[in-house]
Design a protein around this nucleic acid. Structure first.
Length: 604
RNA sequence: GGCCCCGUAGCUCAGCUGGAUAGAGCACCAGAUUCCUAAUCUGGGGGUCACAGGUUCAAAUCCUGUCGGGGUCACCA
């Protein structure tokens, strides 16, 4: 049940009635306006701009339209009063009985409350994390990982059919470096003194066991071979060893992908999916052999002017065409990504989401270009060629790119520099072990994704109450506690009992109580808004506000005992208030579950 | 230099895609605990929404320009 949609439709009905009676022009639209909660609660429960939006097409004064609607809506059995204010706002106050019914509806829906049919089962593929398989995850990966995971939860809650995907960059130079690094550890495991790890190889100790395992499996056999013979073996071995580390790291954050897509698989086993994807673009006339201009703004000594295979991404507004082949004849990373997205589209997804780090922003236009090219969609730009959004539209499927900004590390307020050499490299696992899964997840979401995030270990660990996650969890635990205490007096009042679900709510008339109901009434709309905007942080902020309202109402019982939830001499009132608490707790619980954060029954 | 993001209270940030008198946390000041968990609550001070124009009934929000901070710019991934 969505109060806003409900009132919207009643306003529409009122407009229709006025039209049929000739009070409004017959061709006047009956949608396109908003119903929202006014900032100032004295204005009423709900406000609409309907009169102002329709003033122009109706060629009437906003206030005149508003007054006609006022007369209509006042007759509604659920409406207590309607007023016209300011430039033509329609302020509506609903009868308490309406809010009481809402609480009952929420309790009846239970965990389904707030779920939406917005997605209508549309298939969505969300690609996130996609860290190179060259070592354990570090803190920097954390934000994108949590963001992607929660976005996936959120879209699923809003009715989309979601696939969570990880693109494994197991081809290219980085994994060759990994292989050489492991080979060194392999020699070490066979008793060789390898000395210091040379510049350019991965120095981490985590490769030691990998080298040892390699020695166990192959003995000294690999030592006899030239690099080009052992490299593929060692590379595959190393990746097979690293990926479980990464999965473990993700599991520590409660993140689980449905699909791990291997970049190397694109060209394995005789089939060349990269070539196929490029050919598909070629068929559209978007591939050509040509030269690129030397990039401006920085001196590049190694720049070489040569003819190469290019994708015409300028066709979609990118600032340069993009190379698909390296000078050694192998595919560029971009070429692999072209094939990967081609593959995703062929798997039938209607909506693709890529979660990028801020350092990959420059990569966005070419990716949008690729997907627009494959789907027949467009990359919307304004007259000056500026990108309107990081998304394609209008094609058989579309791509949206979400960018999470950098995480700046602090310790006791001082910037904290990560360095592998100085031993201050912080792995994701370290952070989760030290701080805990829930605080990390919540912290990563308690900021708009595009905003840089300061992450202070000392703050999040030592003064853990600074972390808002405890505030929200405490609200949930407090609700559970109220039930525990209430049952000592009224044993029949357990959370799912008929006595609570069917409680007579007519005495819930305190302003704070009604305010709590209004806050949970907003939940479905919040979910839809956050899902449409693909902004999970909204949910974190919402839960904080809702928790605040609950803590506030609880505390009012300190000064005014008659407001306490448990009234030992009044079972009817207690049941009513517990019903409200149960509904609030339900929303917090549902919200936290979308965030992937635990909703504890107790904080002790 | 091109492109992209950001600029809101002393600090860290929200602001529901254009709504009414711009909010929260931290910090500071003053209070609340024989009382359902004080990991909590109540009150107070604190603002040229970077700046200047424009669009309209209405702009922190959209457009243009300027200033400041950050990111990024073939052949890496």
């Amino acid at each position: 049940m969505d109060v806003f949609a409900e009132i919207e439709s009643r306003i529409s009905a009122a407009l229709e009635a006025l039209k049929s009676e000739g009070d409004l022009p017959a061709d006047l639209p009956t949608s396109g306006f908003d119903v929202e909660t006014p900032r100032d609660p004295t204005h009423g429960d709900l406000a609409s701009n309907v009169a102002m939006v329709l003033a122009k097409p109706a060629r009437m004064k906003p206030r005149d339209i508003a007054e006609k609607l006022q007369a209509r809506l006042s007759a509604d059995a659920d409406v207590a009063s309607v007023s016209v204010a300011g430039p033509g706002f329609l302020n509506i106050t609903l009868k308490p009985a309406f809010w009481h019914r809402l609480v009952q509806a929420i309790l009846k829906e239970g965990g389904g409350y707030g779920r939406s049919t917005l997605g209508q089962g549309k298939t969505v593929d969300i690609e996130y994390v996609s860290a190179n398989p060259t070592g354990p995850m570090h803190v920097g990966h954390c934000r994108g990982a949590v963001f992607g995971d929660v976005l996936a939860n959120l879209l699923a809650f809003a009715g989309f059919d979601v696939t969570r995907e990880y693109y494994v960059n197991d081809a290219g130079g980085q994994v060759d470096v990994l292989a050489r690094s492991v080979f060194l550890r392999y020699r070490e495991a066979l008793g060789e003194d390898i000395g210091a790890i040379p510049e350019g190889l991965y120095p981490g100790d985590y490769l030691k066991p990998v080298g040892e395992a390699l020695a166990k499996e192959h003995g000294a056999a690999l030592l006899e071979m030239p690099e080009e013979r052992w490299l593929p073996t060692v590379r595959a071995f190393a990746i097979d060893a690293i990926m479980p580390m990464i999965r473990d790291d993700l599991a520590a954050l409660n993140i689980k992908h449905d699909v791990f897509f291997s970049e190397a698989s694109l060209t394995r086993g005789g089939s060349d999916k990269v070539k196929a994807a490029i050919d598909a673009l070629r068929a559209k006339g978007l591939i050509y052999e040509g030269r690129l201009e030397k990039p401006k703004g920085h001196d590049d000594e190694e720049w070489e002017d040569r003819e190469q295979t290019l994708f015409k991404s300028t066709e979609f507004g990118d600032e340069a065409d993009r190379a698909l082949m390296k000078s050694d004849g192998s595919y560029t990373y971009f070429a692999g990504d072209v094939a990967y997205h081609y593959d995703k589209l062929q798997r039938g997804y209607r909506h693709l989401v890529n979660v990028f780090g801020a350092d990959h922003i420059g990569y966005i236009p070419r990716m949008l270009a690729v997907v627009a090219a494959f789907t027949g969609g467009t990359v919307e730009r304004d007259a000056k060629g500026k990108l309107k959004s990081w998304a394609t539209s209008g094609g058989s499927a579309d791509l949206a790119i979400k960018v999470v900004n950098l995480v700046k590390l602090f310790k006791n307020g001082e910037p904290y520099k990560m360095s592998k050499r100085a031993g201050t490299f912080v792995t994701l696992r370290d952070v989760v072990d030290e701080v805990g899964r829930d605080p990390v997840r919540f912290m990563m979401l308690y900021r708009k994704e595009l905003e840089p995030l300061d992450f202070d270990f000392a703050k999040v660990t030592e003064q853990s109450k600074d972390n808002p996650v405890f505030y929200v969890q405490y609200a949930h635990a407090r609700a559970a506690s109220v039930f525990r205490n209430a049952q000592e007096v009224f044993p029949e009042l357990s959370p799912d009992s008929p006595a609570v679900l069917g409680a007579d709510l007519s005495r819930l008339d305190d302003a704070g109580e009604i305010d709590l109901i209004k806050k949970i009434a907003f939940f479905p709309r919040l979910i839809e808004g956050a899902a449409k905007a693909e902004e999970p942080h909204r949910l974190a902020f919402y839960l904080y506000e809702l928790s605040s309202a609950l803590h506030g109402q609880w505390s009012r019982g300190n000064d005014s005992p008659h407001l306490r939830f448990i009234q030992a001499d009044d079972g009817v009132m207690t049941a009513a208030r517990l019903a409200l608490i149960a509904a609030v707790q339900q929303v917090i619980s549902s919200g936290l579950s979308v965030l992937g954060v635990e909703a504890p029954e107790s904080m002790r």
